[in-house]
């Protein structure tokens, strides 16, 4: 709950970084279709997997262990994983392109903006996008009757937190990448996270030792956090999820700022 004001205060703290957001807005004026399409992907997944496949499954054990409809189970997980996907796309492929090909940043840095401003500005942009998608997705959940607890209000800031954590780490990783081939590694990390973070079925499906490993992975934090908020299963473990994602995000930001200093101010 405290996540949203904290992160946004940090990000928007630097006013100059907003110039970067403006730049992105300007670029996307021409690519609004691409922008809009980001909203449809999780929606398609919800309709197909949640309802189509859900019809074959019926109910499945929720965060408290009590059975809930499969749509309700999978919708928050899709919200979390699309927040991850969106943030990773923006912070890896697009960020790499800007860093190495477009030379956008090099020209920006001949202005009073610092590398830290660049990093936070890019991330803020990714989060604004992610926030809009999350709001849209919540709207769809309301329409489809997938809202059962008032705590669901915090699902959108929680999705932003997931985006922040993955976006920051994604940028940090990208600052070390040299060729497009390195991005195969990104897919190699993202796909297993998407499939195995208790996204499509409960954690208890795994044998005990595997459960522990899954519980330590980053997307699981987001999935369990948003799912628990959605069904109103509030427990102290949620604070751990929030702390995990915050630490991950700030660590990523710290690394990327250091790296950008090195890469851009030679």
């Amino acid at each position: 709950m405290t996540a949203f004001p904290l992160t946004s205060a940090f990000l928007i703290g630097s006013r100059r970084s907003l110039r970067l957001v403006e730049r992105n807005l300007f670029v996307y004026k021409h690519g609004w279709l691409v922008l809009l399409s980001g909203f449809f992907e999780p929606l398609f997944y919800l309709l197909s997997i949640g309802f189509g496949l859900g019809a074959l499954i019926g109910t499945i054990p929720g965060p408290n262990g009590q059975p809930i409809p499969y749509q309700l189970f999978v919708a928050p997980a899709l919200l979390a994983s699309s927040a991850m996907n969106g943030a990773v796309m923006e912070s890896t492929f697009n960020f790499f392109f800007k860093l190495n090909y477009n030379k956008t940043f090099t020209s920006i840095l001949s202005t009073p903006l610092s590398p830290g401003d660049v990093a936070t500005g890019e991330l803020t942009w990714a989060l604004i996008r992610g926030g809009l998608y999350a709001l849209g997705f919540m709207g769809v959940m309301v329409v489809l009757g997938l809202v059962v607890s008032p705590w669901v209000i915090f699902a959108v800031p929680a999705a932003l937190l997931v985006g922040f954590a993955f976006g920051a780490v994604g940028m940090a990783a990208t600052s070390f990448m040299k060729t497009w081939q390195d991005f195969d590694l990104v897919q190699l990390v993202i796909l297993p996270l998407f499939l195995f973070s208790a996204t499509f079925y409960p954690l208890e499906t795994y044998p005990e030792p595997l459960q522990v490993i899954v519980q330590l992975t980053p997307l699981y934090q987001g999935v369990d956090l948003i799912r628990s908020l959605t069904v109103g299963a509030i427990s102290p473990i949620l604070l751990f999820h929030v702390a995990y994602l915050l630490v991950m995000g700030f660590a990523g930001l710290y690394v990327v700022s250091r790296r950008l200093d090195k890469l851009l101010l030679q």
Binding site: L56, I57, Q187, L188, L191, L195, F196, F200, Y201, Y206
Partner: peptide, 28 residues
């Protein structure tokens, strides 16, 4: 490598993991 890995990941997660809940219903 990824040609091998992708089907392994998908079949494990969706086929085995999620499949257990579908099979419990004898839906197919």
């Amino acid at each position: 490598f990824s040609s091998f890995l992708t089907p392994i990941l998908f079949l494990t997660a969706m086929g085995l993991g999620l499949g257990a809940y579908v099979d419990a219903n004898q839906s197919l």
